[in-house]
Amino acid sequence: MQKITTCLWFDGRAEEAMNFYVSIFKNSKVTSVLRWPEGHADAGKVLMTTFELDGVPFQALNGGPQFKFNEAMSQSIDCKTQEEVDYFWEKLIEGGGEPSQCSWLKDKFGVSWQVVPEQLPRLLLDPDRAKAGRVMSAMMQMSKIDIAEIEAAAKG
């Protein structure tokens, strides 16, 4: 049993969000859907869902309109190839998401994601600080990360 599970707070869209995310990530599944019981004003409506995205557990709670997502909390996706970066970027933007800067985007629910090719952190941490600086400068000009461009920047 995993000790820590991310709980995402939605205003009536928990089940829709869960289904959206499960459709994007391989090896994902819905594990439960808890509905309000009979006798409650919201009887039959979804209160909370649990699901896994590529084996990582999540909860989605229909908590109401009091809180909104912001960039202070994001989900980061490690990608091996440009095709994988493109896939997650396009799927998460679908339906009203918004691109941001430096690998960040918000999906249609307002959840922030980072779609990060594995080369990026390695190049940013390179002991050659001039190389790392060139990569940082290139990244700052991008929304979705282009692996070929950051690798070209690293070469100078």
Rank of each mutant, 00 (worst) to 15 (best):
Q2A: 12
K3E: 08
I4Q: 02
L8D: 02
W9L: 01
D11I: 07
G12V: 06
G12F: 05
G12I: 05
R13A: 15
R13P: 07
R13F: 08
E15G: 08
E16Q: 10
A17N: 12
A17G: 07
M18A: 01
M18H: 01
N19G: 01
Y21F: 00
V22I: 14
S23C: 03
S23R: 00
K26N: 09
K26S: 12
V30P: 03
T31R: 02
V33I: 10
V33E: 07
V33Q: 05
R35A: 13
W36K: 04
E38A: 15
G39H: 02
G39Y: 04
H40T: 10
D42G: 02
A43M: 06
A43V: 15
V46T: 14
T49N: 01
T50S: 11
L53R: 00
G55M: 10
V56R: 00
V56K: 01
V56M: 08
F58E: 12
F58G: 03
Q59A: 00
L61A: 01
L61D: 01
N62F: 09
G64A: 06
F67Q: 00
K68Y: 06
K68T: 11
K68V: 12
A72G: 10
A72T: 08
M73G: 00
M73E: 01
S74G: 05
Q75F: 13
Q75E: 00
S76F: 13
D78C: 13
C79N: 13
C79W: 09
K80A: 15
T81I: 15
E90I: 12
I93D: 06
G97K: 00
G97C: 03
E98Y: 02
E98M: 03
P99M: 10
C102S: 10
C102R: 14
S103T: 13
S103F: 12
L105K: 07
K106A: 12
D107S: 11
K108F: 12
K108G: 13
F109S: 05
F109G: 06
W113T: 07
V115K: 15
V116R: 01
E118P: 05
L120N: 13
L124M: 15
L125S: 15
D128G: 07
D128F: 12
R129L: 12
R129F: 14
G133V: 03
S137W: 05
A138P: 01
M139E: 12
M139A: 14
M140D: 05
Q141R: 03
Q141T: 06
M142L: 13
M142P: 05
S143M: 04
S143Y: 02
S143R: 13
D146L: 14
I147M: 08
I147C: 02
A148T: 08
E149H: 04
E149K: 07
E151A: 06
E151F: 14
A152G: 12
A154T: 07
A154R: 08
G156E: 11
G156Q: 00
